[in-house]
């Protein structure tokens, strides 16, 4: 119902309404971030929404007394690993789905939709037994592999959507010049889809960075935990130390937030084009 007949005043009224809505919806996040700069005593004493004092005590505590930065490091390893695997597999499959047709491809495309709905706990039980036998519990490897598969459908749809926007004529011209189909993909199409691949990579990284369930099953030792798993441990250990919890929560969202700002314009496109029509 987008009507261009809106007057300027009406648009600013809408703007004001939206500001209120955004503040209300993001209220829990805003409160946590603002309060993370007070010590736990100050937080518990004032119990106000707007902080009265300012200190970095909580952040110093996280840096000095906890493994939080170890968790961050583990998160980068796990997310980076699954990003590399996920983007490689998704870009190839996405290209196949974008350029070719056939029964195998359409079955594959439907299989992706089923995986999107699959209750991962079913696969987790046998996988846990296998990886434990291989002594890979607490290693990033099983987590990287499982994350890759879980986000593969969405990443593939995103990649396909980008390849769809690149004209086929480019590859056809390259083939006339003597390139094979694979060379055309490697040398012509991939370099052109740089921004698209960047978006898929960031999405892929974000997914693994945020994931909790799979990680909590496989990463049981404190030295192997990623940020979400480590924070859950904090939630049990420091249940009443709100200052540290809030500071950890704030630090945990910073990477998410920065990466998301870089990719947000593509997320819409991929989510809708792939997820819904798929």
């Amino acid at each position: 119902m987008s009507l261009n007949s809106n007057t300027l005043a009406a648009r600013w009224r809408l703007f004001a309404i939206m500001v209120v809505i955004v503040l209300v919806i993001n209220f829990p996040i805003i409160v946590i971030v603002a309060n993370s700069f007070q010590t736990t005593e100050q937080i518990m004493l004032n119990r106000s929404i707007i902080p009265q004092h300012f200190s970095f005590t909580n952040y110093e505590f996280l840096w000095g007394q906890t493994s939080f930065f170890r968790f961050l490091f583990n998160s980068v390893i796990v997310s980076g690993g699954s990003m590399i695997c996920g983007v490689s597999a998704a870009s190839m499959a996405g290209y196949a789905l974008s350029r070719f047709k056939g029964p195998v491809l359409s079955i594959y495309s439907q299989a992706l939709f089923v995986i999107q709905m699959f209750p991962i706990i079913l696969a987790l039980i046998p996988l846990f037994i296998v990886f434990r036998a291989l002594e890979l519990v607490n290693s990033p490897i099983p987590v990287i592999i499982i994350y890759t598969v879980v986000h593969l459908p969405f990443a593939t749809w995103m990649a396909k959507a980008f390849f769809d926007t690149i004209p086929r004529e480019l590859e056809e011209a390259a083939q006339v010049d003597g390139c094979s189909k694979f060379q055309a993909f490697l040398r012509i199409v991939l370099p052109l889809s740089g921004p698209g691949m960047a978006a898929v990579s960031i999405f892929s990284f974000l997914f693994s960075y945020n994931e909790f369930f799979v990680g909590s099953v496989f990463l049981r030792d404190e030295s192997s935990m990623t940020v979400p798993i480590g924070m859950q441990m904090f939630m049990q250990q420091f249940a009443t130390d709100w200052g540290s919890l809030m500071a950890a929560a704030t630090l945990a969202v910073i990477p998410t937030f920065i990466l998301f700002l870089m990719v947000q314009k593509y997320i819409t496109y991929g989510a809708v084009a792939g997820g819904v029509k798929g």
């Binding site: 703007f15 955004v22 946590i32 960075y209 909790f212 924070m231 939630m235 969202v253 700002l261």
Partner: peptide, 26 residues
């Protein structure tokens, strides 16, 4: 509907969806 800063609002409203589940629970 048309409004100023629409792009910003769209991003701001997606925040609860993109932050880690542990952070939202805290």
């Amino acid at each position: 509907m048309e409004m100023p800063f629409r792009g910003f609002f769209r991003v701001a409203l997606l925040l609860p969806w993109i932050i880690p589940s542990v952070v939202s629970i805290v």
